[in-house]
Design a binder for these strands. Structure first.
Lengths: 243, 243
DNA sequence: AACGCCGTTTGACCTGAGTCAAGGTGGCCT
DNA sequence: AGGCCACCTTGACTCAGGTCAAACGGCGTT
């Protein structure tokens, strides 16, 4: 069965009392997905939300013609689809599938909502979460509408860079990351190459080392249509000018 | 001063009790913006949120180079920036400016939050709101990443089309709408022209008449890279094939 | 009526990024 | 080992949509 210790790993749930957790645990079920296995599809009625314990879940949109776009990668400790619980006849707005063998806990939304009624504090935690996520989404839109592919990749690298370190792990297959950043795999590869040739980064599989963080930050700052040419044969450590 | 009747026009606030509304009114202030006037900037500390009474407010992101992208147009009865109230040191993630002379009410976030503590119901209303907005944002991202400019315009038209009617008003300057849809004004104009030449719509200033809704729906469905050629001189009412 | 101001339209051109089609490269299985 | 398969890379080409610049049109002002 579901352990309340496991539930506590969820940021969203960690604020609940022992008693509440027990109650949640009663209406929760553990599940396990194989690599690539689909959890739910866009449009399915949403009766539960999920907490990831191990692995990674890919949330993505499907267009009618079948192209897909990764909206988010959910990692252990995070919950997803819990926002739907407050809509009347909720349906999942995305598809969810495991990126690798994954363990998660499914929590009954209806019951959870009714439990929330006794706990304004938890409501506030949730409100804070949603708020944060909303902010992130705005950033995402900004990213898509205002920045080039190169800039988006640079931003991602900087965001993922652990403070103080110069090296980071992409944490997923490059193709998946590409879709997360709304870029085709081919383009992602070319961007990576460009950054390498500029002397900004170094890549070893999924290990990326930032060689020139200032330059990378400059690239990340760039909006649309800012040229970023690789000058023919200059020594070119920092081809981008300070504005 | 602020009338509680006015407060009631806000979907978010309409669920509150008389008593609560009175309290909100005490910490609220009315304000009035001229056309184009800035209400707050991206990055400003967020101490209050707003309810629009009359007019329109444009929420937009600014990139460092100065290009802007409209995230949302807020119309009377809607509140905005209320999600920030649950973050610890919140700052507005967007700029807000009036599109036309606008009246609104500013509500103290701190006080409102503490009032919410006595009203789980209101929390739920808010949660529902945020949830809905989150869903909308996902749709927006989907839109940007998976659809062409033409398809986005078509979607907007269909969305704004009052049920049963064949005509709608764009409701804002075309340039503003263009930015809302992440398209340059020039491109918007061309898309419009294309749709007219296809015989799908008719335009008279900001009045748009849908002549062939099925065709428009087909166009709206199209994702990226689906060609949509205007055939040279066919009579061409429906150049898009049923899949 | 002539003027200027804005928002929109049009045209010519350019470029970022997608598409299609080959090649690499590395892991995993007999 | 060899071979298969999935992923990533590279190259050549195309195209949607952005850019720049010029013309158009409506409207309020003097």
């Amino acid at each position: 069965m579901v352990e309340i210790e496991e539930l506590r790993t969820g940021a969203l749930l960690s604020g609940l009392t022992e008693e509440q957790l027990v109650r949640v645990a009663c209406h929760a079920s553990r599940l396990r997905l194989d690599e690539g296995q689909l959890l739910f599809s866009q449009g399915d009625p949403a009766e539960r939300f999920y907490l990831v314990l191990k692995g990674q879940v890919r949330l993505f949109r499907l267009s009618p013609e079948g192209t897909e776009k990764v909206i988010e990668i959910v990692t252990p400790g995070q919950t997803f689809a819990e926002a739907l619980m407050f809509l009347n006849a909720p349906r999942y707005p995305v598809c969810a599938a495991a990126l690798c063998p994954t363990e998660l806990i499914g929590i009954d939304a209806r019951d959870f909502a009714s439990m929330l009624r006794d706990s304004v504090d938890s409501c506030f935690v949730l409100l804070g979460n949603l708020s944060r996520r909303l902010r992130a989404m705005i950033g995402e839109i900004d990213n898509l509408a205002l920045h080039t592919a190169t800039s988006r990749v640079a931003r991602y690298l900087l965001m993922k860079l652990p403070a103080g370190r110069r090296t980071l792990d992409l944490g997923m297959r490059k193709g998946v990351l590409a879709s997360r950043l709304s870029v085709k795999p081919e383009t992602f590869s070319r961007v990576e190459k460009k950054l390498i040739e500029l002397g900004t980064i170094e890549v070893q599989g999924s290990q990326v080392t930032i060689l020139d963080q200032t330059a990378l930050e400059e690239i990340a700052r760039l909006g649309h249509s800012q040229e970023l040419t690789l000058m023919p044969c200059a020594s070119a450590a920092r081809p981008i000018r300070e504005q």
